Amino acid sequence: MRYPRLIIAFMIPLFLTGCASLNNTQQRALTGGAIGATGGAIIGATMGAPAVGAAIGGATGAAAGVIIPQLGHDAIRLLGGN
């Protein structure tokens, strides 16, 4: 049980370092996916399938992270803003 914790402790800094060069859209997709996967895993755990919940939540969160800000930009352009 000790080794998975050790592996996770070393992997977290690697993942965070890899996120430094992402553009805004990629950062929103990553953040939305992470939040969605967490929420989906929690909801899925109550239903007995946390992995399925995490997969569905992650995909939905990533899509929302990309689409929702774009909809806001389009609405501003339609209303005559910059």
Rank of each mutant, 00 (worst) to 15 (best):
G57Q: 11
R77M: 05
L16W: 11
M1H: 11
Q26S: 13
C19I: 13
Q26F: 10
I43D: 04
R28Q: 12
P69V: 05
F10L: 14
I43Y: 13
P69R: 03
G48C: 06
L16T: 08
A41F: 07
F10H: 02
G33S: 12
A64D: 03
A45S: 15
V66N: 03
Q26A: 15
P50A: 09
I8E: 10
P50E: 11
T17D: 02
M1A: 13
P13E: 12
T17Y: 13
T25V: 14
I42V: 15
M11T: 13
A55E: 00
G80T: 06
G32K: 04
A37G: 13
T17A: 15
I67M: 13
P4Q: 07
G57F: 06
G36I: 03
T17G: 11
D74T: 09
C19Y: 06
A29C: 13
I8N: 02
I43L: 15
T38R: 01
A9G: 09
A64E: 03
L22H: 04
L14Q: 08
R77L: 07
L71E: 08
G36N: 02
I42T: 11
N82K: 08
T38W: 13
L71I: 14
A34K: 00
P4N: 08
L14N: 02
P13D: 11
M47A: 14
N23F: 02
